[in-house]
Amino acid sequence: MNTALVAAAPRHAISLRSIAGRIGLLPALLVLLVAGMSAVDAQFYGLINVLNILRNASLLAIVACGQALVIIAGGFDLSVGAVVALASVVTAKAMAATAAAFPGNNALIIASGVAAGLGSGAVVGLVNGFCVARLKVSGFVVTLGTMSATAGVGLMITNGIPVYGMPEIFVKGFGRAQALGLPTAAHIALIVILVMVFAQRRTLFGRYVYAIGGNVDAAVVSGVTIQRHIVGTYVVSSVLAALTGILLTAQVGSGQASFGGDRMMLQSIAAAVIGGVSLRGGVGRIEIVAISALFLTILGNALNLLHVDSRLQPVFLGVIMVAAVALDELSRRSKPRV
């Protein structure tokens, strides 16, 4: 929507500011951060650290993409962190159960585990979507409720104890493996981002999500079937969170109800918001959100490398979040209203 406005504006309006507005401040900040850190600490661009950053950024980016989609449609998904945990323990439990029933049949074991994990995410997404779209309860409250319920179910299944019993090949051959020099999580994140960008720009679903978030009434009048698409956004968000849970499980080698949690949920919202997704709905681009997830991960990594007290680190995150959104808000205000 923003780009359409800029493109429609007369030529002389394309100033430095509008270019910055189109690309955003974020990539510039990212480059600055990377350059600065590389100059300060050689460890930063060492292979181990880069792989570490990519792995963590991929996990966050996948969750943040789903979160962004929900927010663009005018909603909220507080349950993503709990879904990460649920999918992790469901995957591990399903794999252990299948392994007991069909020992040695690795393909079946892995397929059942992944299907169960993604399925558990889809169920939470359907519940969220149903409550928001059909019962018309605010997304914040619904996902606040399902967050508590989902976390409770995850803990009930495991009693808080890590679940083992996954095939070796799932952990060593997939979770901790690399292909073409990149961790598997990074490949999957790239695929997710590309698919999501395509969906956002080239599919009816993507356009409708913008329409619903921008102006529900106008979308209804234009004949958009609101309910189905809102349910769709919540299902996508939960399934992506479940995917992250599965990747995390494969990396660590056990299913744990302590994965994800509030931290992952808050970080995914932070990534979406710093990535220019408006909480008022209707505005936001997946690719910028992915960059923002990378930025947040590198920022955390940089603070670690600079030996900033880990207790003090949240302060930086908080200040940067508020500053990024405040700058965005102020620059929008200084632009003339159409």
Partner: peptide, 8 residues
Amino acid sequence: YVQMVVLG
């Protein structure tokens, strides 16, 4: 843990 589900 059941309490968490009920509260939600």
